[in-house]
Amino acid sequence: MPKSFLEKILFRLAYCFAWFFVHLYRWTCRVEVKGPLLDCLNEDRPVLLTWWHQDMLFNFYFLISFAKRRKIATIVSQSKDGALAAYLIEKFGFTVLRGSSSKGGKEALGLLTDFVIKEKAVGIIVCDGPRPPGRVAKPGIILLARKTGYPIIKIRSWGSRQHLFQKSWCKLALVFPFSRVTVWSDTPMAVSRESRRQELEESRLEVEKRLNEMAAVSEGHFGVDRTASISVKTN
């Protein structure tokens, strides 16, 4: 949360900008959803969602309408950039817990686990980062699935018109207004509470593989130049 007077002003300006974009998306973008995501959200099923950092702007926008009627929680890093992200995400109705794989992650994962179980909430972990390389899954979403017993739905969004911030480690995508956007979602994936280390690693690799497969499909969906995509680490 903002601490200094200047931070408060900057955060409020950022919220005004985000609010404007959210409503512009609502009025101008045509969104198509593929897969089971809408059914799971509309039927209030307990579920976990995960995606790459590259997709997070539009994905969080897409979930705002659902956050108005059911509880959705996520983890945001304790970095300075994370403070702004946490402020904005909370302003749009999400529950935010602070932590990452490099700082406070274990505590934040425990808090998220407890919240998701108690509130039967949707849990979100953006599964690469908070540092490069992009599109390499961290184990947090798998551990959350094992502890909660909730299935994981993997998500990818891609717009017909968007800008990729090439200097950001994740090549963050900003979808332009008046775009067509497709949101892909994968078959819910269960992680057994009895899973051991090797099984957990296999599940992590499966999440990474499927997200990258959806990324490959998405980048050709609107005839977008594939050279705009980031490289994918193979295992």
Score class of each variant (00 low, 15 high):
96 V>F: 06
114 D>T: 15
144 L>W: 01
6 L>Y: 05
173 A>D: 14
220 G>P: 09
42 N>D: 13
24 L>G: 03
24 L>F: 10
157 S>P: 08
218 S>K: 04
201 E>P: 07
210 R>W: 05
126 V>H: 03
41 L>N: 08
119 E>I: 07
100 S>K: 00
61 Y>I: 06
169 W>M: 09
141 I>L: 05
77 S>Q: 02
46 P>S: 10
191 V>D: 07
38 L>H: 10
73 A>W: 00
121 A>V: 07
58 F>C: 11
139 P>D: 08
46 P>D: 09
179 S>Y: 01
108 A>M: 01
156 R>T: 15
224 V>Y: 02
153 I>F: 07
213 E>Q: 14
62 F>I: 08
6 L>C: 00
102 S>K: 13
193 R>N: 13
91 K>I: 03
215 A>P: 06
25 Y>Q: 02
193 R>L: 06
96 V>S: 06
187 T>I: 14
140 G>P: 08
220 G>C: 05
70 R>D: 01
51 W>F: 15
52 W>T: 06
183 V>H: 02
219 E>C: 08
20 F>I: 15
205 L>T: 10
78 Q>V: 12
103 K>Q: 14
101 S>K: 03
221 H>Y: 15
197 R>K: 14
135 R>D: 13
199 E>V: 04
36 P>A: 04
65 S>D: 13
84 L>M: 03
46 P>E: 07
